[in-house]
């Protein structure tokens, strides 16, 4: 565990050094979506018995926690391809599982930080939802899934541009289609079935239900936990294979 802690502390030190830049960078996306979709059209639109702004905030939480957890992949790739710091980790007497754990914890922390920013922005906009234990459990599981995916994929890509490609093809479409901006149950049945294959759909559903104080669907939590575990094992396997 001390190895995992060392990796985690290094990532946190970097995050602390870039605190204000990170704060600005994590705030700008949610703010733009809130202004464009929330304040722009949100006042006129209602989803069920809630305002669109209320509907949107849990979606932004799901989307941003995914993006920020997955962003750990870029940090790993910069460390691997540009700064060669990954060699320092590989040469250290720590197990690969410690490396994977440390990086995933860093991804989850980044994600929680970004969620806190959205909650503050939401409160400033007059939207107070229920940020209960189910809400945080869903956020952490969502972050666990995407941080694990990020660590695994970061080991498979051969360059930083490959990483950008993965983000463009998987993360960006998921951000828009995973129940963040619109209610999936209004889509045709076949579209709903396709979208139910996306982990973000389940995360959005769980986060939104918890934030609205509704009964949560434990199946979504179990699914995210199972997927996160599978991706964690794959990440460990791929870190093992990253040695030349």
């Amino acid at each position: 565990m001390r190895g995992a802690l060392a990796i985690y502390q290094r990532e946190m030190l970097i995050l602390r050094k870039r605190f204000f830049r990170q704060l600005a960078s994590m705030s700008v996306g949610p703010l733009l979506y809130l202004v464009a979709f929330g304040f722009g059209m949100g006042r006129e639109v209602r989803v069920g018995d809630r305002s669109y702004l209320e509907f949107l905030i849990p979606g932004l939480v799901a989307m941003n926690s995914m993006i920020q957890a997955f962003a750990i992949a870029s940090e790993i790739n910069i460390a691997r391809f540009y700064w060669h710091i990954f060699e320092e980790f590989q040469a250290a007497p720590i197990r690969n599982i410690a490396y994977v754990t440390g990086e995933i914890l860093a991804g989850i922390t980044r994600s929680l930080f970004s969620v806190a920013i959205i909650i503050v922005i939401g409160l400033l906009s007059g939207v107070a939802l229920s940020y209960n234990i189910y809400f945080w459990a869903a956020v952490i599981l969502n972050s666990f899934v995407f941080a694990s995916l990020a660590v695994g994929l970061a080991m498979l890509v051969k360059s930083h541009s490959d990483q950008a490609l993965l983000t463009n093809f998987f993360i960006t479409p998921m951000a828009f289609l995973g129940g963040t901006f619109f209610p999936i149950d209004r889509m045709p049945e076949w579209v709903q079935q396709v979208l139910s294959l996306l982990p973000l759909t389940h995360a959005s559903k769980a986060i939104r239900s918890a934030a609205f104080g509704e009964r949560v669907d434990l199946a979504s939590y179990l699914l995210l936990a199972a997927l996160g575990t599978v991706l964690f094992v794959l990440a460990f396997h791929w870190v093992n294979r990253a040695r030349e």
């Binding site: 290094r10 030190l13 970097i14 050094k17 870039r18 700064w83 060669h84 710091i85 060699e87 320092e88 040469a91």
Partner: peptide, 12 residues
Amino acid sequence: LVPQNINLDNEL
């Protein structure tokens, strides 16, 4: 190990 490439953490 002192590798060939400088691999210090530049930001630290």
